[in-house]
Amino acid sequence: MKNDSSWIRIPMPVRYLINICLIAGLWLLISSLVNAGVITNYWKGILITVGINIILAASLNISVGYLGQLPLGHAGFMAVGAYSAAIYMKSTPAAELIRSGSRSAALPYLLAAIAISALVAGIFGILIGIPALRLKGDYLAIITLGFGEIIRVTITNIDSLLGFKFTYGAAGLARIPKYTTLGNCFIMVVLSLGLIHMLMKSRFGRAILAVRDNEIAAESVGVNTTRYKTMAFVVSAMLAGIAGCLYAGYLGSLYPSTFKFMKSIEILVMVVLGGMGSMLGSVISAAVLTVLPELLRAFSDYRMVAYSLLLVIMMIFRPTGLMGSYDFSMTGLIEELINRAAGRSAKGGQ
């Protein structure tokens, strides 16, 4: 049994060290592939999109999987983050700095843009979360659905504010400095996933999971359910804002039509397909659902058909999603292997 004292445990600091080493290794692998020319510019772009989608899916998974609520306006938070970062970056000299090749000089602006997008998305998250999450039941779905549409329509219609050009409306916000690189996208993915992990494996995460499992019981043991629901929802919104920020810096131009209701559904599909409550599931399905359409460009007309079919098949054969609520732990695996080698199996050897 795992509670057995003879079970060899890897101490916590070593676990973190192993994980950091593995992440660094992964980055070395990616960057060497880029340098060797295996990853072309085309695939670099796809990888950045994968990274953005991973942040989106993993952040929505906080609300859908861990909190057990169903927001339908994730694209709205992404839009808020994207536009606030883009407008900020356009007002700074970052564009010239990047164009002249001194990316490191533009770093403070990039950090500020990420902070601004997270903050603005977070504020909207609070504004929407508090009234919606005080109620028991599925009000959040309707309210966020409305929010997503309101944001899109607003962006389309306030092309200028107080005489300043603001969002440029339906014409789109163009010439945004292209500040997103594979490197900073990778770092943001790691940081976002790390943040989610740290949050969920602490007392806050426990309380959030408790609210999902049984709200009445959670309240009866003194858990302030509104507070934790709002906390999870706001973190989810903030990360979506950061994903939006990366998205703006990757494309260089923003159009309100990108953030339609279907975008929210696309993200939701990633979460459901990966398994609600599984971060690994979100990561895998975000990657697969980003790369697959690229590989099947020839059949792009049938994408929505394929999506719906995939979901129907999934719900019939594996309703809990690809991974269920299973979460993978690399150090857990290593621990298991060490113990196997030492002749102790997880099930036997009591």
Binding site: R203, R206, A207, L209, A210, R212, D213, N214, I216, A217, A218, S220, V221, G222, V223, S325
Partner: peptide, 20 residues
């Protein structure tokens, strides 16, 4: 009404939330 998907220990720890 337990937190069915959480471990026994976590069920108890949730209840100690306010004293952590």
């Amino acid at each position: 009404r337990l937190f069915r998907n959480m471990s026994v220990e976590d069920n108890v720890k949730v209840a100690m939330d306010n004293s952590i």
